[in-house]
Write a protein that binds this DNA or RNA. Structure first.
Lengths: 224, 224
DNA sequence: ATCTGGGTAAACACAATATGAAGAAATCGT
DNA sequence: ACGATTTCTTCATATTGTGTTTACCCAGAT
């Protein structure tokens, strides 16, 4: 699967330059022009790496970082700061706010790419993270691709994991089949109607029959 | 609350220019550089207005518009198209695809702002009364397909939910049986006279007998 | 008394899921 | 590159909950 990188910078030129380079390297790139949009986008796409400009109007990079770190679903995301050289106070403050790296700009594309690669490699390693976010007896660690159910860690196949992940992300919310298809399978893929049911059944047999509630004519929900 | 505007354009300069002006006017601005990102962002932030560039690589504005119009949660969002002057075919196609306005670029900020204001004023009247307010002890979250009654979240069957949703949307207004049929069942479906009663009965037994008032010879209303 | 419009419980029909099995399609190990 | 294994999808059939109808009730108006 393509690694997802989120770029947040108020300067469109930077977005374009860096974004282009990342795309050339095969990353899936998302961009936002301000902090809030960045956070929203991060929640939406759950990127593997977020590159944050420190200096932005309204909400600066530090603040964005803090919010990301406070979000259960994103707290493990790797964050790199991007800022003008010689603002060395930034370095300290940035790492303190929970950043994983600090990149001075202007930066040569080659250099940036190797930094990005290194960061992603690092995040790829199973960084030990107990990750105590339990909902209805199930906790998920997206980065490790693992599910803990009743203290047992189990590894689900990709589709099952992603389906569980989706439903689990908002317990009690009913996801329509359409929702599920577009989130788990993607908008363009066409699969039969019964496919979702089958995956639900797998999850039910592995995690408990009544954790997944059918809402006829609408979809499924996780929990209560 | 700040009005939310989503800008979708593949040209970062345009995003910046328009975005900046909108922000100065006090709008909450979100931007996306391509159609898919725009749709994702729209689903995330549920904007009041979406400004769509017609010409974009991969997915053009028309297509984005169609997808938005097909999304239950977004279908009522106001959409304005933005495109180069003299592509007059666009105007027709755009409005046909469900656009609410059409803006030729280049456009002077002043002009754009007044258009935006006008559009939002218009949308303000009709709907955009989204989330989470309680009416007579009942609140509805359409996105989650859930109803909260006395603090209890419950999931109703589809038809019951839609019926409640309709009546609840305008408490005190009497909906005729015809109203109800066309909104909940659709104009072409033919059902017997007692069908609506039965669903009202179900709702009454689940949410309280006196929340739904019968108006003999006319229809039903929700609340006082 | 009769008529009109709605209330209600129970029966019914059917589309929507559940489910087992089997056929594709990836993925893995060698 | 190959078969072995796992995962994903489709298919056929059983099952179920929802939506609808039915049948009969009641109340108020005529």
């Amino acid at each position: 699967m393509k690694k997802k990188v989120l770029l947040v910078d108020d300067e469109p030129d930077i977005l374009e330059l860096i974004g282009y380079n990342l795309q050339m390297e095969g990353y899936e790139v998302h961009t936002a022009l301000n902090g809030q949009a960045g956070i929203d986008l991060a929640r939406e796409v759950n990127p593997d790496l977020i590159i944050l400009d420190v200096m932005m109007p309204e909400m600066d990079g530090m603040e964005v970082c803090s919010i990301i770190r406070a979000d259960d679903n994103l707290k493990d995301t790797t964050i790199a700061f991007l800022t003008a050289r010689n603002e060395d106070y930034s370095q300290v403050a940035g790492l303190e706010a929970g950043g994983d790296d600090y990149i001075a700009k202007p930066v040569k594309p080659k250099v940036l790419m190797s930094r990005v690669k290194a960061l992603l490699r690092r995040s790829n390693r199973t960084e030990s993270k107990p990750h105590q976010n339990e909902r209805f007896g199930v906790s998920i660690d997206r980065k490790r691709f693992s599910v803990i159910y009743n203290g047992q860690e189990l590894t689900l196949p990709k589709k099952e994991f992603e389906l569980l992940n989706l439903l689990w992300s908002e317990p009690g919310r009913v996801f329509t089949r359409e929702n599920i298809l577009s989130e788990v399978w993607g908008n363009d893929v066409v699969v039969g109607d019964r496919t979702i049911d089958v995956h639900i059944r797998k999850l039910r047999s592995k995690l408990g029959e009544d954790l997944f509630v059918t809402v006829k004519g609408v979809g499924y929900k996780f929990g209560s």
